[in-house]
């Protein structure tokens, strides 16, 4: 079984977000980048599914050379090899088209993605990728098992669970719970340098969207504590200050 796991290089969760160029560009100065935590879950399940010689896991990323530490982290966690498509990921359509171009000739049985990347949170790439490849697409899966070339997949739906059977090839996006992220061990870290990392050039893709501007959320207001013994003060504050009653 050949599994392709799509990974994103994203700012660390504690990043202080700011913007450049008249609020049209994320300011990467001083930002620490990490492997997208949702992709780590997809990668962990892919490694479990192929353990014991049952297959191989390739990770793929659309990014410039500075994403290679993140790619090597994925190799350290346990991917067998990696592909970097040498382009800055401009939007979901661009990324999906680039991924599809490589995936279509790779003979992959499953393409796995995290549910979304934690930077732009578009959650569009998996479905777009499946559409371009004309593969079945199953989003937000909670569980995946295999018999032969058929997968049994659980999806969580409002108030219950959906059980799906699908034949390879297909695309899934994984939700939390499908696996526990794996911490890379010393052996994995040391072998990451020697695992193949292939760089391919991007194909031409039309630009369908661009960022007009970003806005920061308004800062949270100060909390005012009013003693439980003084309900009258609360009423007055709600009326005069918050103007909600």
């Amino acid at each position: 079984m050949k599994i392709l796991v799509c990974i994103s290089n994203v700012p660390d969760t504690t990043t202080k977000v700011s913007f450049n160029n008249n609020n049209t560009e994320f300011n990467t100065n001083g930002v620490q980048f990490i492997l997208n935590p949702y992709d780590e879950i997809a990668l962990a399940r892919a490694i479990e599914l192929t353990e014991g010689g049952k297959g191989t896991v390739t990770v793929i990323n659309v990014g410039l050379v500075d994403t290679e530490p993140t790619i090597r982290k994925a190799l350290a966690i346990g991917a067998d090899d990696a592909i970097r498509i040498n382009a800055a990921p401009s939007d979901s359509y661009f990324v999906a088209k680039q991924l599809a171009e490589v995936a279509k000739s790779g003979g992959y049985d499953i393409i796995m993605c995290g549910r979304e990347s934690i930077d732009y949170n578009g959650a569009q790439v998996p479905s777009m990728l499946a559409e371009v490849l004309d593969y079945p697409s199953i989003s937000l899966i909670k569980k995946i098992e295999f018999t032969g070339n058929e997968a049994q997949i659980d999806r969580e739906i409002e108030g219950g669970k959906e059980v799906i059977t699908v034949s390879t090839p297909f695309v899934v996006s994984t939700a939390e719970g499908v696996a526990e992220p794996k911490i890379p061990n010393m052996r994995g870290i040391m072998s990451a340098r020697t695992k193949p990392l292939q760089v391919v050039e991007p194909v031409a893709v039309e630009t369908l969207s661009s960022f007009t501007s970003f806005e920061m959320p308004t800062p949270r207001g100060n909390v005012k504590l009013i003693s439980a013994d003084e309900p009258a003060k609360l009423v007055e504050a709600l009326n005069a200050e918050a103007k909600v009653i």
């Binding site: 911490i183 010393m186 870290i189």
Partner: peptide, 17 residues
């Protein structure tokens, strides 16, 4: 180096988990 940073991160992740 990148490798040393990765080893360090493994320690941090292990403590956290």
């Amino acid at each position: 180096t990148e490798e040393q940073k990765m080893i360090a991160q493994t320690c941090v992740d292990f403590l956290e988990a």
